[in-house]
């Protein structure tokens, strides 16, 4: 098939699936269901080929073909995980999980402690090491950050009853958390709009003459479907009421 034909077919499929999925915002319909099931099926198939060709083949099959027998050990440990689906020999999966736990913890704990714990504690304290050379604004920022960290930690400290000073500090911690959630929510809205813009930008591209007005035709088709569906559904309800 020529490249242009493939591109036009791609534009129609892409525009169609996008509009079908967006149509759920109006109400549930068979086109949405088709797109939803297609997405799930295609996703499963795609991941299957990724594991087959990008993981199993280069990491296990090709080394074995080159007589690198050592890969048998991790391959067997990986296969052992599947045995958990067979109750009689499910105990074998413990070997694979043990390896995964040990290996994962060994890699993650030291790095996590250094990067997210010690370094961040240092980052909270460090500004106070240079108090004399600090501007009033930097000092205020540093104090604000230190107070924020301590109050939020107090909020999550459940070994002491939250009364008196602890309760006050905990309440201040809530305000810091709310500011963070507010900022995160604002950014979330921006991110969702970016994704929406991405799809609309594509729909606009697919609406061109070169793509035989894919967006407009599919959109009009969907509108006609909803009008007809509404009309016949209304008629059916009316005749049902009459019969009753």
């Amino acid at each position: 098939m020529p490249d242009t034909t493939l591109l036009i077919a791609g534009a129609w499929i892409s525009a169609g699936l996008t509009i079908f999925l967006f149509s759920f915002l109006y109400k549930d319909n068979p086109f949405f269901k088709i797109a939803e099931h297609l997405y799930l099926g295609a996703g499963m198939g795609w991941w299957f080929q990724v594991y087959l060709f990008d993981v199993l083949k280069p990491k296990v099959w090709l080394p074995l073909m080159n007589h690198d027998w050592l890969v048998i050990i991790p391959a067997l440990l990986g296969l052992s995980l599947i045995t958990q689906f067979i109750p009689k020999i499910s105990w074998v999966s413990r070997y694979g999980f043990t390896f995964l736990m040990g290996y994962g913890s060994g890699l993650a704990i030291p790095a996590g402690l250094a990067t997210d714990f010690i370094n961040q504690i240092g980052g909270t304290i460090q500004p106070f090491a240079n108090l004399t050379g600090m501007s009033a604004f930097t000092f205020f920022n540093s104090v604000l950050m230190a107070v924020g960290v301590i109050c939020v930690l107090v909020y999550f400290f459940f070994s002491l009853e939250h009364t008196g000073v602890i309760k006050k500090a905990s309440n201040v911690g809530i305000y810091f958390l709310m500011i963070y959630f507010g900022a995160a929510f604002g950014n979330t809205v921006m991110a969702r709009f970016s994704l929406l813009y991405g799809r609309f930008d594509k729909l606009y591209a697919f609406s061109s003459r070169e793509n035989f007005y894919a967006t407009q035709i599919i959109l009009i088709g969907m509108v006609i479907y909803f009008i007809l569906h509404g009309f016949f559904a209304g008629k059916k309800t009316a005749s049902g009421e009459e019969a009753a």
Binding site: A114, T115, Q120, G123, A191
Partner: peptide, 29 residues
């Protein structure tokens, strides 16, 4: 964690707007 802090490789990140506030501590440090 595995390249920047451990081996001193400078790291720059580009992330989605959702994730952006979470990277403040890494920038400050």
């Amino acid at each position: 964690a595995y390249a920047g802090d451990k081996y001193g490789v400078p790291v720059i990140a580009g992330v989605t707007a959702i994730s952006q506030p979470g990277y403040g501590p890494y920038l400050q440090k």
